[in-house]
Structure formats: C-alpha cells, structure tokens
Design a protein around this nucleic acid. Structure first.
Length: 789
DNA sequence: TATTATCCAATTTTT
DNA sequence: TTGGATAATA
C-alpha cells in the first residue's frame, strides 16, 4: 500500500508527501500535479496510522473538495476525514458552538442577494440616509471589513478618524446590519468565517480543544485566503503546527474579494520552521504555451520568482489573432471548432473559451448556435438564483428559522394575499416597539390598532399557514416542499403566470422538488436544516461535471483549476483585460495579468488569444485596442494574425519597441477577412477614441498626436488619469461645455477638480469618475463633434 | 394593491 | 443591451 502511494511520484513530490509533521509550504505552479500530491499526502498519512478524524482539509470550492475526496478514497478506501470548504467547515462549527456568538443552531445562511436585502431592510428600519454612497459600495465595505476580521465595533473604532463618505455611512450601517442578522438568527457568507474567528479568539478552551482535534490541517489555494481564514487556520494550528498549505501566488485572482496574497508570501515568516517545496515542473501544457505564460507573468513585480518548465513537446505555436468585431471573433472560433471536430481531430469537450466578463459569452453562444455546436456556459449560481426557487426556499427558511425576517418579507405576500406595504409598516412598527421578529409581531396582529380588520385577518391566515407548514417540519423535504407549493397557493400562482406569459416557472418548481428528493437519497442526514445549508453553500455549478461532450464557455475566474486540450481566450482588449476598473491601481493590474496567466495555463496543446478592433458592448459599438499584456508575449515564436503596423494600426506596436515584428502574416486573408486591413486602417486613422476609452498611460499621448496629425482638424481630446489633470488645464464636459480647472484637491479616488465653465458657474468633479475630457487647442463645439458614435 | 413605465448602472463572485 | 429597483398609474 505504502509503496503504491509513493512509487508513482517524483522526488520532489515525494518530499512533500512524506513531510507530515511541522509546517509545510507547497508552491505549486500550474499543472504541476498539486492535487495529486495533496491527495497522496493524505493517503500516506492515513497509511502511517494517523487517525482520519484528526485531519482537516480545507478547500475553496466544493468541486475541489469532492474531487479530492474521490481521489483519496481511491487510494485509501473508506476513511472519513473532514474535507470541505472553509465555509461549510465554519457552518458546522457554528451549528455546534454558535451559541457562543449569539446564534441558535438553526441559524440561516443568507446568500449575497438575501444579505443585500437584509442590509437594505436594516437601513430602512434604522431610517438611515445613504446620502451619497451607493448600497453596493456599502455592502462591499462591510464585506471587506468582515474579511479583514473587523467586527462592527472594531470598524467603528478604527475608521473613526478617517474622513470618507463611505466609511462614515458604513460606520452607521454595519452595526445596524449586524443587529438585524443576530435578531434574525442569520449569517451572511462572511459571517461564517468571522464568527468562527472571533469565537476561537474569545474562547481559549474551545480553541484548544479544536486545535487538539484537528492535529493535521491542510489548506488548498492558500493564496486565496483572506485574513479571517488565515486567523482560523492559525488558531487551529498553534499547539500542533502540522499545517500544510498549497498554492501559487501567480494564480491569486481574488484579492478584490479580500484575499490577501501576503498570507502565502509570508508563510515562512509566520512559520519559520516551515519546509518549502516547489513544484515547478508542468505536466499539462506544451513548451510554447508555458513559455508564453511564463514571459507574461514575469512582468509582475509582486511575486515569488519561480521557474516553470516542462518535458512536454514544443507543441503548436500559440496564436494571436485580431478580429474586426466580436461577431467575427466568435464565428471564426466556431468555424475552427466545427472543422477540427469534423475532421475527427478533437471532440467538443476538448475546447474551452474564456473571457473576462460574462457578457462576452453572448456573441460566442450565438455563433456556436448558428453552427449547431453544442456548448455549455458555466455560470456560478443559476438554478438556486431563480425567482421561483428562491421564493420556495424562503418558505423553507422561514419554517426552519422563524426569526428569519428576510425570508419573511419575501414570502409574506407571495402569492398576493392582501398583506400590502401599509399593513406591513404597521407590523414593522409593532415589531420594533416590542422587539419582536416579524412573524412574532404578526401573531399579535389582533393587538395592532392601526391595522384594518381585513389586513389583520389576512395576516392571521398567513400565520396559520406558516404554523401548518411548520407542523410538517420533520417530513421529508420534498414532501414538505410539495405541501408548501399546494398550501401556500404558490403553485396556482405560478401556473397562472405560466399560462399567461407562456413560461415554464412550474418546471423550476418541479426541478427544485427533484433536487430535494435527490438530496434525501444521497445524504445520510437529510434534515431541513442540512438541506438549506446545502443549497446555500453548494452552487449548482458544482454538480455539472457530468462531462457531456460540449464546448465549455466561462470566465477566466471560473476556469481556475481546470484544464483543456484547446483553449481560446477572447476579448483581450485594453479596458477589458485589464479591466478599466483596475487601471489606476498597479496591484489590481497585476492581478489582471495573473488572470490572463491562469487562462493561458489552462491550455494543454492549443491556445489562441484574440482581440477585436471594435466591440459592441451595452448596445454601443466602440473602438477597442489591444491589451498591453499582448505586448508582453513571446511574439517571435507565436503565430500572429494581426493587422499591418503592429498590434494596432495606430502604432502602439512601435511604441512597445516591437514595431515591424508585428507585421501582418501573409496567410492572413485566409478565413474571409480580406477587406479588413483597409477597413481597420481607415477606422483607426480617422476616428479618435471614444472619450470613455482611455488608453494606457503614454500610449494615449501618441494616439492623440497621430489623430491630430492625420486629421488636421486641430482638435483632440481624451480622458486622462486623475493625476494627469492640472490646474489651468482646459477641459470639456458633455453637459456644461468647456471650462478651466481652477483647483485640484484630494488624492487617489478622491482627487477632485474645481472647474469654471463658460456659464461662469464653478463645479466640482471627482476626477476618477468625472466625464471630463481634456481639450487641446480647441473650443467646446469642435471637441463635442467627436463624442458621437 | 398590482401592473406598467421609467430610470439607472453596469467586473470578476470559490461561499 | 439588460436587469433591477423605484415611480406612476389603473
């Protein structure tokens, strides 16, 4: 057995696998067989007599957990160890010890939508004024605080001195939201981690017990842990420092969600005893693909140097292609897939198409459909997000946890049963006055004077409905669901809608009931509570590995951890990848580069990168320019189908010092783009970029010059980086016309310009957001002539 | 109170 | 272009 486990490994891999005691850091490049090492390591531990119940393996996705469980079971069958996501592990702990942080064991887990509702409700109840901050910003701020282990009190204390609109308002919203959650006996995703971290911090005995229990801890994708996760792991590995973490700093693509890459970068500082093992040999990609990835990522400053190598073949050249428009891009890809599959070269499941934003799937889907090519779009949560499903689940939530006000609000008048806004307001007042949950308050509907007879009756009926359903709480979930559908009138409601609008919502209802049946069959413990936890923490994308023979479409984020023989990455354009919202911040920009790195390293044999010259987005067609990342690739060994003059005809190529190397290849006209060279040169020479399409710093100036020269119109304008605006500069605003900058104050996103316009009015603008464009020797009428499409 | 109109904003999203 | 969230109306 033991021999089996070790014999198939390389020297380095074996080193990692056999290191059991003491901290271990595994730096695993893409395709380096990391999962293999991790699973073999656990298997090895088990054969060494370590008790499975002392092992805790934490992953980020259910998929990863499932995969590993399966593989371990193949090596060492029948062992039961805890392998799961951080969130499900925390949920389990909280079911047991949640009372320490004020949670009853039937607490609800709110998904992002629910928590948004909850925040909104909390804001309304407290009658807070959001003033200038948007709800989304506040949600983000709270989530961030939680990920960084800052409870509402701590947030209040620490941001007290800061003068910022967002933290100002968040300071008020955060505690109100927290109270709302506790009152509702509910947690959001971030809370799962935060509560556990706080619990471990404040209860040393419990921490100690759990530390003893989980003697061997393993964390996958450690580069994606946030501070809360870090603290949890740390707290559980104090007495026994048998902590092994795996990850790759170059694949950290979730910093925007609070992951702190420093956790992995500084592991050796945290655990000076740590053994470090580097898995650098790649078993996945061809030499050329790996080389492209390596060269790209070497442009990042924030990283651990690492040598990637492979003994795989040289492989086909990586392709870099420019298309006139996303429709052409999509058509060409579909055509190539169709022809290769037809020739029997590959099957559909070998192909994946990656993009930066979900919206880009559209032209691709269109083209694939036209060609009759089966495909699947991987989108995180589809099914459980649908209205009908959420509605019914809310009934279940309310039955399971009567304090769950979010669920209450969702279903109280669904289908309509005469409990309107006015009536609810009265109930809310009552609830607030006597510190009741909404359902409790409803039970006292008769006592609320402001309520009309009719409203009170309706409310009483609703309460009875909930009570009747609650009586069946121990029935199998599918049966309970059927009861909900029938008794609540929701079924009829949906049927009526379907009949009217020719939809199939009923189908979704049935699908949910099926999902419940499935759950009952598969899980040994199928309580209502566990079902609700399951649907909250397990997205349906996890289950879709059924491996049908289809082309796969997904974002690069979703692609992490996967591999495909042939990969297309589309829309590698400036402002898309890197995304425009990452342009101001070098760290964010490096993350975008890592994202492309992840995309590229998914490919085994074929890789095609592409960008377009124009892109229709949100109904508007705009000029697009190639991403700066494309200049960082090993052009010499790639096959480029790009227009004369470089990556873009404007001359950006020469700026990057690559100039003539980027000439159009002779075979370029092959697939029906014959007219496209002239086409683009015209476009680029005559149209200035849209005001909204900012170019990379530096490039921008050149473009401006070229346009100016070619047009002799004497006018050019462009949106600048906030730092580029200066006092005295002439600017233009779509609404107010042109003006002059009188003063500039503030820093970063708060950098603000005071502008005096022609009408003598002075207005202030945040430069990061302001629709201001710089005007070069031109008056406002001329400059506006170019802002139209 | 329920449907319809209008306006607004818009990455990525393991859980 | 699209979805979601208010506002206006029957």
């Amino acid at each position: 057995m033991q021999v089996d486990i070790l014999s198939s490994l390389t020297e380095t891999q074996r080193e990692a696998v056999t290191h059991i005691d003491g901290p271990l850091l595994m730096l695993a490049g893409p395709g380096s067989g990391k999962t293999r090492v991790v699973t073999h390591r656990i298997a090895y531990m088990l054969t060494q007599g370590i008790n499975a119940r002392n092992i805790l393996a934490l992953t980020f996705t259910n998929k990863a957990a499932e995969e590993m469980k399966l593989r371990i079971d193949r090596l060492v069958p029948g062992q039961r160890l805890w392998m799961g996501t951080f969130h499900s592990f925390c949920a389990r702990l909280l079911r047991q010890y949640g009372n320490l942080v004020g949670l009853a064991d039937n607490f609800s887990i709110l998904d992002t939508k629910d928590s948004k509702k909850a925040i909104q409700t909390a804001i309304d109840e407290a009658r807070l004024d959001l003033s200038h901050a948007s709800l989304d910003t506040i949600i983000w701020e709270i989530s961030n605080a939680k990920s960084n282990l800052r409870t509402s009190e701590e947030y209040e204390r620490e941001s007290g001195s800061k003068f910022s609109g967002v933290s100002e308002i968040t300071r008020q919203v955060y505690p109100v939201y927290e109270k709302f959650l506790l009152r509702s006996n509910a947690v959001d995703f971030d809370d799962l981690l935060l509560h556990v971290a706080v619990m471990l911090r404040d209860h040393p005995e419990l921490r100690h017990d759990l530390d003893q229990r989980y003697k061997y801890i393993m964390v996958d994708e450690y580069q994606d842990t946030n501070l809360a996760q870090y603290a949890i792991v740390r707290a559980l590995s104090l007495s026994d420092q048998n902590l092994s973490v795996t990850g790759d700093p170059d694949q950290s693509i979730y910093a925007w969600r609070g992951a702190s890459i420093s956790n992995i970068l500084e592991f050796e500082k945290d655990y000076p005893e740590a053994r470090v093992v580097r898995l650098e040999q790649n078993y996945r990609s061809s030499k050329r693909i790996l080389n492209a990835a390596d060269l790209l990522i070497s442009n990042n400053k924030q990283r651990k140097q690492k040598v990637l190598f492979t003994e795989n073949d040289e492989g086909e050249p990586v392709k870099l292609v420019c298309f006139p428009h996303p429709n052409d891009e999509a058509d060409a890809i579909a055509a190539r897939i169709a022809s290769e599959v037809q020739r029997g070269k590959r099957s559909l499941r070998d192909y994946a198409i990656f993009y930066r934003v979900n919206a880009f799937s559209r032209p691709l889907e269109h083209a694939l459909m036209k060609q009759g090519i089966p495909y699947q779009v991987v989108r995180g949560l589809e099914f459980f997000q649908r209205k009908e499903v959420k509605d019914l689940l809310s009934y279940l939530q309310l039955i399971n946890n009567p304090a769950n006000d979010v669920a209450f609000y969702r279903v109280v008048n669904l289908p309509a049963r005469g409990i309107g806004k006015k009536s609810l307001e009265h109930v809310i007042n009552h609830a607030q006055r006597y510190q009741l949950t909404m359902l409790e308050a409803c039970r006292e509907a008769g006592l609320i004077e402001a309520l009309s007879k009719r409203a009170a009756t309706a409310i009483n009926k609703f309460v009875t409905l909930v009570d009747v359903l609650t009586a069946s709480i121990h029935q199998p979930i599918s049966e309970l669901l059927v009861m909900v559908v029938d008794e609540s009138g929701y079924g009829d409601f949906v049927d009526a809608q379907d009949a009217k609008a020719d939809e199939d919502r009923r189908g979704n209802v049935d699908e949910l009931i099926n999902a419940a049946r499935e759950f009952e069959r598969e899980m040994e413990e199928s309580s209502l509570e566990s079902f609700l936890e399951h649907v909250a923490l397990v997205s349906d994308a996890d289950g879709m590995d059924a491996d049908p023979d289809r082309v796969t479409l997904m974002t690069m984020h979703a692609a992490k951890g996967l591999e495909f023989p042939s990969v297309f990455v589309v829309g590698i354009e400036h402002g898309i990848l890197p995304h425009e919202r990452s342009l101001e911040d070098p760290a964010a920009e490096e993350e975008e580069r890592r994202l492309l790195f992840v995309g590229i390293t998914r490919a085994e044999q074929q890789l095609q990168l592409s960008y377009c010259q124009r892109r229709t987005f949100r109904g508007q067609t705009r000029i697009a320019s190639p991403s700066q990342f494309l200049y960082e690739l090993p052009r010499e060994e790639m096959e480029c189908q790009i227009p004369t003059g470089g990556l873009s005809a404007i001359g950006l190529g020469s700026l990057a010092g690559l100039g003539s190397e980027y000439e159009l290849e002779p075979d370029f006209h092959d697939d029906g783009h014959a007219d496209f060279v002239e086409d683009q040169s015209q476009e680029h020479m005559q149209l200035p970029p849209e005001p909204g399409t900012s170019l990379p710093a530096g490039l921008e100036e050149i473009t401006t010059q070229l346009q100016t020269a070619s047009q002799l119109a004497g006018t050019a304008q462009s949106k600048l980086a906030p730092s580029a605006y200066q006092t005295g500069m002439l600017v233009s605003h779509a609404e107010y016309g042109s003006g002059v900058i009188l003063a500039i104050t503030g820093k970063g996103p708060k950098r603000t310009a005071t502008v005096r316009f022609m009408d003598q009015e002075e207005r202030k603008f945040r430069l990061a957001f302001a629709p201001l464009t710089r005007v070069d020797h031109a008056d406002d009428e001329q400059s506006q002539a170019f802002t139209q499409d």
